[in-house]
Amino acid sequence: MNILEINNVSKNYGNLHVLKEMQLSVSKGEWVAIMGPSGSGKSTLLNIIGCMDTPSKGSIKINGIETSQLNKKQLTELRRETIGLVFQQFHLIPHLTALENVMLAQYYHSIHDEKEAIAALNRVGLGDRLHHLPSQLSGGEQQRVCIARALINYPAIIIADEPTGNLDDENEQIIMNVFRQLHQEGHTIIMVTHDKEVAENAQRTVMFEYGRIIKVIVNTIYA
């Protein structure tokens, strides 16, 4: 069963053609890595999948819902209910604790459940950092807060844009262990990365160039 279907999607900004007739499907529970040079359209595609942008042409279905038929409010609701976002830049509120930053995601669902937020932070190994401010956390710990925040509303798809890009090797391994565990639990993961070793954790690596998919690699550990 495909949780994501992208058919003939193009994205233009004036005369700039960022995505060109993109075709891609992702199965429920699959881990897909997206690689390619800067400017090849990777982040633009993530923004469209994450309902933060819309294609100029083509069709995208998320969980069977055709996004081109949705207005801005409906796209926001779909993103809130279906997508968990993890960014390279952590986007944590500096004056809120780790727990409060995670609970902020609940606010948009009109939910206030501190126990669930604590459980999400425990899942990423931060049960002893609940009341620390972002400035009191390492880069890897801040990224784990972001992952906990992305998980709090049980998203169907986790989208990660260079989640290890700002981390040292030790913290990169910690974050990748979290993603491996999430994948084993059945989460669908779509991850942009420049790191070949990170991409090799995914089931497929989709190679981008000039707004097109030029190659799809089935990674050896899944072949």
Rank of each mutant, 00 (worst) to 15 (best):
D168I: 12
A119W: 05
V206Q: 07
V178P: 04
M103H: 12
V86F: 06
A156V: 09
I157S: 10
V86T: 02
Y210M: 14
L182T: 09
G14Y: 06
I93R: 00
G165L: 09
Y107M: 14
V192F: 08
G39S: 08
A199R: 06
Q89C: 02
I221C: 00
G39K: 11
Q74H: 08
M22C: 09
N101A: 04
L19I: 05
I214T: 14
Q74K: 15
G36C: 07
V9P: 10
I190D: 04
T205V: 15
R212K: 14
V26E: 08
L99I: 11
V216S: 07
G84N: 14
L99M: 07
I60T: 10
G211T: 04
I48A: 00
V18D: 09
M103D: 10
I65L: 13
A148I: 08
Q143G: 12
K57S: 13
S68G: 15
R80T: 10
P163Q: 08
L46C: 04
L130P: 01
D195W: 08
I83L: 14
N177A: 15
N2R: 13
Q173I: 04
Q88H: 06
S110F: 10
L85H: 11
E170K: 15
H91Q: 13
Q69I: 05
F179W: 03
E30I: 03
K28V: 04
G211K: 04
L137F: 08
R79N: 06
I189P: 01
G50V: 02
I49C: 01
I213V: 15
L121T: 12
A105F: 05
I157H: 05
I190Y: 07
M176Y: 11
Y210S: 14
A148V: 03
M176P: 10
H132P: 00
L130Y: 01
L85M: 15
L19R: 08
I174S: 07
N101W: 05
T220R: 12
R123Y: 11
E77H: 12
T67I: 15
E170V: 15
L24T: 05
I159Q: 04
F90Y: 15
R204W: 00
F90Q: 03
Q184M: 06
I190F: 11
T220P: 01
E77D: 14
A160G: 06
E185S: 12
V206C: 09
I189R: 09
F87Q: 09
N47G: 01
I157G: 05
T188Q: 01
Q74E: 15
R123P: 00
I147L: 01
Q143W: 05
I6V: 15
V198Q: 06
I221W: 12
V124D: 11
E172W: 01
G41I: 05
G84R: 13
V124E: 07
Q184K: 13
K28Q: 15
L19W: 04
Q203M: 11
K42M: 06
N177H: 13
R79F: 08
L104I: 13
K11F: 10
V102G: 12
I62S: 08
Q74F: 07
L92R: 00
R79G: 04
L78D: 03
L46Q: 02
D128S: 12
F90R: 03
I221A: 10
R123C: 03
I6R: 05
Q181W: 00
V124Q: 09
Y108K: 09
Q173D: 14
L70G: 12
V206S: 01
T205C: 07
E81I: 03
I83E: 10
E114A: 09
A33V: 05
Q89M: 11
